[in-house]
Design a protein around this nucleic acid. Structure first.
Lengths: 135, 135
DNA sequence: CTGAATCCTTGTTGATACTG
DNA sequence: CAGTATCAACAAGGATTCAG
């Protein structure tokens, strides 16, 4: 199964139909790895939120980055964007079932980090110590 | 549990000990989201490989990016680096159990993409169609 | 209120060349 | 063989300003 995973990811000698899958995998993984997407998903997982509310909950995000993060999520159907024709305008973002299921998948990785953070920190100390103290 | 996840990720009003966890989560997620790490992990999941072998298997990676990808993985204890004192030099990289377990966690996300790629593509078409065809 | 447009700074990537 | 050093190109992120 791991070989099957690799066959989906590797780019040398890919079959043409596979090329689109590997691109999509990279696209989504890159999304998950970016600075704000996971925070947006987890924030929306609690409850639907309007733009400003999101902006307030996610500390440090700029308006620009927030809308840049939301657009591809909306495009992929991970979140819905509902604009109410009022003045002042009101736009509510909510997580779709699809987005929720991605959040669940990502949770595995997040939990992995939490479960292994001590071990990782210890490894880093050992590595850095060996580098500076080569005795 | 989802609220717990969010409490680990969000940066506003964090407890001091949490700050290091959220940084680590971002660090690892960023790693997973970069261009080469997942490919390296999946390649090494099959068998230990030397530098050149990795370089050949992962199409498109430069020597520079490969060593830049390998160093943090080694530092965190996800892969081992064994240098044999020979001429010519030989260095073998292998996945540790820790690295293997991260690969398993990431597999959930990869499988999620595979399972939902059609739905995502359909959503994108709809989104793009609505943008260009506002009738 | 909800963004889009602009500018600017920084970080990331890749090509190339060089070393133990 | 297994990298490091250097440089140029580019993308990402943030601050600010403007608009519907």
């Amino acid at each position: 199964m791991r070989a099957a995973l690799r066959s989906q990811l590797v780019t040398d000698g890919v079959a043409p139909e596979c090329a689109t899958t590997i691109e999509l995998v990279r696209d989504v993984l890159g999304r998950v790895g970016d600075k704000w997407t996971v925070l947006v998903i987890t924030a929306l997982a609690e409850e639907p939120l309007r733009f400003t509310a999101l902006h307030e909950r996610i500390a440090g995000v700029s308006q620009r980055m927030l809308s840049q993060t939301l657009r591809p999520l909306t495009r992929d159907g991970l979140v819905t964007r509902t604009a109410y024709a009022e003045v002042p305008p009101r736009v509510e973002y909510a997580l779709t079932p699809l987005g929720r299921s991605l959040g669940d998948a990502v949770t595995h990785v997040v939990r992995w980090v939490q479960d292994h953070q001590v071990e990782i920190a210890r490894n880093r100390d050992g590595f850095d110590g060996a580098a500076t103290d080569p005795k």
